[in-house]
Write a protein that binds this DNA or RNA. Structure first.
Lengths: 361, 361
DNA sequence: TTGAAAGCGATACCAG
DNA sequence: CTGGTATCGCTTTCAA
């Protein structure tokens, strides 16, 4: 019957070790590690009511709500989502895997996803380094973390990756290429068609010998699609295909510059180059400027993945614009719809692309 | 006494709704949602032994281990880290907050963190949009998620942000600027000194009227530090300070281009500009090229955050190089050390920077 | 080297 | 509108 207070009810148990760094300090600050029960005791309600106050405030008495919020404030309570997720069997974490965190292309998509997810969801990110096995490992890690959805940039996967995601039965959107048979859903554009259209555009402008440069095709389904789009356009227009002017290049400005140099050395008769991927086209253009090769008179240059830089160089680059930010937004919103149980319209969404003609061709 | 099998022991309970999408299908595939108990039953051991097999294989009998791995394979078991984290009171998720996911500067640091964390930790990422209140919200979300450590790019925070992190008592590294009093730890370089040194370098090259352009100082401690470094160098060299040639610019190539135009219009007598932040310097250089202003004869241009592009434009840009990738690596490794209980050496690590003189000055 | 029991902190369900 | 109770799936502890 002490008159000291009823603090008894609040803190009991915790017999396992878990040594909290000084219960005294915690009490002093009234902050460290308050649990829902602590809030409940302070507000003279049950933990359940606190839980409701947080999740469905509308069905809680306004007065009660006020007391609870006061208690939350006083204790510095931060809900434990680990416990919440375990109990409710649902998490609010979305996983995203890109081939490279460095590449600012992907940053656009990441930003679209993050913006669309908003405050209600958190974003787990991993980098597959363009390696399928690393993607698989990241997927396994994410599934262990029980993410509520996955966004993959890659559209080529190991069998186990597909199996794991399908078994987990969580929504998944692939964004790197418009695939016919997605694991689950896809939001993207057709790399094949983009390359086809750009090549056709160059042919239409009257260029006779058009070279093609991309990143290495190995494990890179996007690059592969683009090369096949280029080849398709040549065939459709009955142009000869010359394997000598089809290159795979290292990434970076230097990669593009070196590719151009090689092409000009080997086959001076080419009159146009389409460099797709990374910043290859910009690298080539800057190199042409340095060498004094006139663009487009000596050599026309077209790029892809349009950005502010391609618009600002001289001459500005003809390019294909991909809606990467929108793709991120769309991917996230497809995920959210599924999570919210909205009957899904389409599983594969084509966001298209746009050829931007400029002075370099 | 059925002779059908002992599958009885495996699947019982689960009376709450949680309707798993068809237990039959699950059984068929033998995959969906196996729990540790299921693995244990199949391997004829207790769940505890499975747990040990996963976490401390060395202390489990090799034969037992083999059976357990077989069972894991057969069931497609993926450990549930939510449950694991709740039980062990520790998570393996690190949280990272950058001002902008779009900016490739930050991508370097993100990559450094991700690479260093390796497979044992997952990375939660948020974007504060350069707004302190959004940083605070992200920190609250991360703490709710019970991250085991936090990396912040910002070094200016709301009081509540600091309080939350300190109360949570988890390791935290700030990376955007070398702060004297970090919340916990810091790994960075001095923005002040970098700007000071670059300004002094320009003075040493004989430039008389040096303009300064940065991103808006508002809520941006890095930009603030850089401006003060510039001012400090001018003072130290007894140069007059002219507020008319100190600009805050919008980001992007366009921002840099417009800043240069404004400076040339207003004060044609300036002979050098130091543009720091984003891609401002590159934008200015490209604009100078377009306008036919000779660099460095008409106007010298220096930048910061050196990258491949600054090296490739003509003339190549004098710049300051920041070790952003290393900063990410260092930040992550400081976090890991603390998590592993390694007695921490220094709380603040200065990674330095490097002035790269090129033809633009 | 292995197992049984008791939590971790929240939520679902049902009763009041 | 509110509370009691039984889990969620794993790890800690302690005993065998």
């Amino acid at each position: 019957m002490s008159t000291i207070g009823n603090s008894q009810k609040g803190r009991k148990r915790r017999p396992r070790s878990h040594a909290r760094p000084s219960a005294a300090a915690a009490a002093l600050q009234g902050l460290r590690g308050a649990r829902m029960t602590d809030v409940a005791n302070l507000a003279k309600v049950s933990a359940m009511t606190v839980s409701r106050a947080l999740r469905h405030p509308a069905i809680v008495d306004p007065e009660t709500l006020k007391r609870i919020h006061g208690a939350i404030e006083a204790t510095g309570y931060l809900p434990n989502r680990i416990a919440g997720s375990l109990a409710s069997q649902r998490s609010n974490i979305v996983g995203l895997i890109v081939p490279s965190l460095r590449n600012s292309l992907f940053a656009e998509t990441v930003k679209g996803v993050a913006d669309t997810l908003g405050d209600a969801y958190d974003l787990l990110i991993a980098d597959s380094g363009y390696v399928l096995d690393r993607e698989e490992a990241a997927v396994a890690a994410f599934l262990s973390q029980r993410v509520c959805g996955i966004v993959l940039h890659n559209t080529k996967h190991t069998p186990r990756t597909r199996r794991m995601i399908q078994s987990a039965a969580i929504p998944c959107v692939e964004t790197g290429n418009l695939v016919r048979c997605p694991i689950d859903m896809a939001a993207s554009f057709s790399n094949h068609k983009a390359a086809y259209d750009m090549t056709a555009y160059l042919i239409g402008k009257g260029y006779k010998r058009i070279a093609f440069v991309s990143l290495p095709l190995d494990d890179n389904d996007r690059a592969r699609e683009r090369q096949s789009g280029y080849l398709g356009a040549l065939k459709a227009h009955r142009r000869a295909i010359d394997r000598n002017i089809i290159l795979e290049s290292a990434p970076g400005l230097r990669g593009g510059a070196e590719a151009l140099i090689e092409l000009m050395k080997k086959r001076p008769r080419i009159d146009a180059v389409f460099l797709t991927g990374d910043v290859l086209a910009t690298g080539a253009l800057l190199e042409a400027n340095r060498k004094g090769w006139r663009v487009p008179d000596d050599i026309a240059i077209a790029g892809s993945d349009d950005n502010e830089l391609q618009e600002y160089v001289s001459p500005p680059l003809t390019s294909v614009r991909f809606p990467r930010y929108d793709i991120g937004c769309t991917a996230a919103s497809m995920l959210l719809k599924r999570i919210d149980g909205v009957p899904s319209a389409e599983r594969v969404v084509d966001l298209g692309f746009q050829i931007i003609p400029r002075a370099s061709t």
